[in-house]
Measured scan of single mutants.
Amino acid sequence: LRQRHVACLARSERGLGFSIAGGKGSTPYRAGDAGIFVSRIAEGGAAHRAGTLQVGDRVLSINGVDVTEARHDHAVSLLTAASPTIALLLEREAGGP
C-alpha cells in the first residue's frame, strides 16, 4: 500500500536539507526503478525540522512539475530554483503492521 502526501518546505540559508537519488541519467536508487527518491535528510535542516520527509520517499512532483519520468539533473534544477518555498508530492510505502 502506498500513501501520498504533500510536503511544503521553506528554504533556509543552508538550503532544503535533503538529497535526492535516482532519475533518468543517474544511478537508480532502487534497482530497475528510474524514480527519484529522498536519499538523505540533513540533521537540523529544513526537511528535518518539517518532519514530513522520510528517506525512501518517492518524489512525484516538485512545485507542480511531474518528475516521475524526469532526469536527475532536471529534478535537481527544480529543487535549486530561486523559489523560497518548495512543494513536494511524495509517495511512501506504508509500512508497519
Rank of each mutant, 00 (worst) to 15 (best):
L1A: 07
R2W: 07
R2K: 13
R4F: 05
V6S: 08
A7S: 09
A7I: 14
C8A: 09
C8F: 14
L9I: 15
L9A: 03
L9E: 04
L9K: 02
R14W: 10
G15H: 05
L16D: 03
G17S: 08
G17R: 02
I20W: 00
A21L: 08
A21P: 00
G22K: 00
G22W: 00
G22D: 03
G23F: 00
G23P: 02
K24L: 06
G25I: 02
T27S: 06
P28L: 06
Y29F: 10
Y29L: 04
Y29I: 04
A31N: 15
A34W: 15
A34I: 10
G35H: 05
G35S: 08
V38P: 01
V38C: 05
S39C: 10
S39W: 03
S39P: 02
S39K: 08
R40M: 13
I41Q: 03
I41S: 00
A42T: 14
E43G: 06
E43N: 09
E43A: 09
G45P: 05
G45Y: 05
A46N: 08
A47K: 05
H48R: 07
R49L: 11
R49T: 13
A50H: 08
G51T: 06
G51Y: 02
G51K: 11
T52M: 11
Q54G: 05
V55Q: 05
G56M: 00
G56Q: 01
G56N: 04
D57F: 01
R58P: 01
R58L: 02
L60R: 03
L60A: 02
S61I: 05
S61Q: 14
N63E: 05
N63W: 03
G64Q: 07
G64L: 01
G64A: 05
V65Y: 09
V65A: 08
V67I: 09
T68P: 02
T68Y: 04
E69H: 15
A70V: 08
A70R: 03
R71V: 06
R71S: 14
A75K: 03
A75G: 02
V76F: 07
V76S: 09
S77Q: 13
S77I: 06
L78G: 03
A81L: 09
S83N: 14
S83L: 08
T85Q: 12
L88G: 02
L88E: 00
L89A: 09
L89F: 09
L90W: 01
L90R: 01
E91S: 06
R92P: 03
E93Y: 07
P97C: 13
